[in-house]
Amino acid sequence: MSVVSSLPGRRGADMLRRAWDSDIAYSFRQSKVTMVAAAVTLVYFVFALFAPWIAPHDPYDLSSVSLMDSFMPPVWEEGGDPRFLLGSDDQGRGILSTIIYGSRISLAVGFASVIFAAVLGVTLGLIAGYAGGAVDAFIMRVAEVQLSFPAILIALLIDGVARGVLGNEAQGDIAYFVIILSIGLSFWVQYARTVRGSCMVEKNKEYVQAARVIGVRPALVVFRHVLPNVLGPVLVIATITLALAIITEATLSFLGVGVPPTSPSLGTMIRIGNDFLFSGEWWITIFPGVALAVLVLAVNLLGDWLRDALNPKLR
């Protein structure tokens, strides 16, 4: 009747082989674009994680920055300095180093806000989808109202409120939390709507009913049975919103309400460079801009691939 399964000792290798053989791994290997996008994303991650060891110098360390080095052009331009491969900005911070450190902030803020949005959205979506009725109606109406405002507007609003409450001097560490909160709050709706939809499908499936027949508590049914089965789409949204969150963070920083200017992110650099764009110092804004565009594009491509790979209809 049944084929004897692998021996326990071979399980690890077995799982690896199965993962390699799986449809997702296969579709990954089939798509060159996806592999390039994954490689690029990986490079950013490595740079972000190991910034202090990779970057030529620490642009956040004021003692190592000298105004004497400001407005250095890239090394291949006339007057370039080998210490600043991509040139330096108005305060003498190396563009390359700042990009590496900036990606770190961009990715960290992006990840944190995506996780925040996902946890909030998935929880509310599960509650709405499983409970139904008035609870569902309330959560989804709130979501729809929020959806009718652009995300950046929501983020600005929350940021403004937070600054109003905490005072403008609450810069520093609080600023990071404020920006994570404001980006997170502006993206939870997508998670909630998707999860609610999947949850409503899953909760009527027979395996969920089978758990209810035993008498399993609703919270446990949702957590153990429904949640693992709605995570696929969440992963896709998370990847796509990661790109969006990075952009939003850059936009907020560009508008000057993002992370503190003493620790510039990619958005901050673009804003700084913007002031000097027409006086000839193009590198201050172009390089961070390209870095941001490539990162967002790579993450987006990964998200697109993941959506297709997880969608059985397109396989």
Binding site: E206, Y207, V213, I214, V216, H225
Partner: peptide, 30 residues
């Protein structure tokens, strides 16, 4: 609870009645 363990239910669709993310042993042991 003590009553619930005295009955059980078998469903129609063998493809929907087992949680696809669980190992068979965990499904049976639930």
């Amino acid at each position: 609870a003590p009553l619930r363990r005295k009955w059980a239910m078998i469903f129609q669709d063998p493809y929907a009645s087992l949680n696809p993310r669980w190992r068979v042993a965990d499904i049976v042991a639930e």
